[in-house]
Design a protein around this nucleic acid. Structure first.
Lengths: 193, 193
DNA sequence: GCTATAAAAGATCAATTGATCTTAAATGGA
DNA sequence: TCCATTTAAGATCAATTGATCTTTTATAGC
């Protein structure tokens, strides 16, 4: 009884996410979004509400798609040292192939928004804590399995690693050299021995 | 033979710097600057040029005033472990008393600008490298003086510490808890033993 | 085929932006 | 005292913003 939508909502959200990831919220105009997604102004508004709602949907999609892709491996039942090393290896690889060229959308959002939007602040802090806990679990397993030094202060190292990862996100966006990124990652892993 | 300026240029730049530090470039309007500095629109333009020039002057002032205040101690002739510990202690203190509430202006600028403005990108990367080199020098002295483990990989740990400091800047702005900041700092210092 | 409905397209709105222009006030040497 | 010059104040400009409104097009049940 009604005209069918011609664009794919999920695909459009994905394109919007990448544009917001690159340019942030205020520097991305609705016209930019129209051009980049190929969806008309009214189409975006009917599907996602206003620009702010679209941005928040994009951030949530980033958490599910990108952050989970990067750190989901830590949630495996008996994730240990190998999974932690895999995460840092992946960060290195993503730096090399350009996937972290724009940094981390959550860190970018923290800088742009955490002082003015409580929901976004909660999302950013929540994801840091999620990463911290996942690292803690994996480190605990690693200690039990004798894969790391046995006096390792698990919670402290988990926080240090999560902090390093967030620092690397900022440095990646800033265009830091690959070799510097690599050194920071090697130092993070050497804390385990 | 001419009317004297009624406002102090340095003081005005300082006020503008703090507003830009808090809100970033695009979210700070010229009207905000007029209100916050108490200097009329034309006064700002005659003294600093356009908004972009004022922002860059503010970033350079931040480097000289804030960054030097935080890390200048590392440039002392024989800075060693004590000076490194002082820097991290200062970061902790500045988190506690709110001076890092808005994060680090250089990290904020990196996120907002390093993809679109080469001069600002150079300034941000240059300051990272300056910090890295200062830490390297101090670590080298610390190794020579036997203040840290003697197999310490100086360059790598310097990069790791600088990365941690940049991560802490992002987390501070994001409103991370004081205890988490403290744990990250303790982990950074424990790498020395 | 007809009609009610919703999507697509893009014109248009008021508000805000950075920047400029106009006017009035203040200064200090002649 | 007077005038050339610079500053201060703020009105104003064109451009851009997010959002809405209007018109056209496509759809699916009858």
């Amino acid at each position: 009884m009604t005209r069918t939508r011609e664009f794919d909502v999920n695909e459009t959200l994905d394109k919007a996410m990448h544009l917001f990831w690159e340019k942030g919220f205020v520097e991305t105009s609705v016209r930019d979004l129209v051009k980049h997604t190929g969806v008309a102004h009214a189409g975006l508004y009917s599907a996602f509400g206003d620009k702010e709602s679209l941005f928040k949907a994009a951030v949530k999609k980033y958490c599910l798609k990108i952050a989970d892709e990067m750190f989901g491996v830590l949630d495996r039942n008996n994730a240990g040292r190998a999974e932690i090393e895999y995460v840092f290896e992946l960060i290195l690889q993503m730096n090399k192939d350009g996937r972290l060229r724009h940094g981390c959308m959550l860190v970018n959002t923290a800088i742009e928004f955490s002082e003015t939007d409580d929901e976004l602040k909660r999302i950013v802090l929540g994801n840091f804590n999620k990463l911290k806990k996942a690292l803690s679990r994996a480190l605990t397993h690693a200690v039990a399995a004798g894969e790391v030094r046995n006096d390792l202060p698990v919670k402290r190292i988990a926080i240090a690693m999560a902090t390093t990862i967030h620092g690397l996100a900022a440095l990646s966006r800033a265009g830091m050299s690959f070799s510097t990124i690599e050194e920071a990652i090697l130092a993070a892993l050497e804390q385990l021995d």
